[in-house]
Amino acid sequence: MNPVNYLYLAALLFTIGAVGVLIRRNAIVVFMCVELMLNACNLAFVTFSRMHGNLDGQVIAFFTMVVAAAEVVVGLAIIVSVFRARHSASVDDASLMKL
């Protein structure tokens, strides 16, 4: 099978994730969409690794997973504490930072 198809799939996943981040309000869903985008990138890295015949892409994919794991830990913690404080997981409700 042509590896380019994997790239198309990665682009598709990334787009779905990006659109999800932009239009969804539930923090959990937004978070999942971010994960989706990260994994789309991972897929693209691995594909490129295969196409170029070296391991660089795979190494970076591992890095990404580690970072994503750390992010999930911190991010979920924030979401949980925000939910506790304001009884809502909607990102629009957390707009205290504006002037």
Binding site: A18, I23, V91, A94, K98, L99
Partner: peptide
């Protein structure tokens, strides 16, 4: 200019994208 800073994370995300 201040009006652009409306506090909604997704607005900022759109501008980043």
């Amino acid at each position: 200019l201040r009006k652009l800073q409306n506090g909604y994370a997704r607005t900022y995300a759109v501008s980043m994208f």
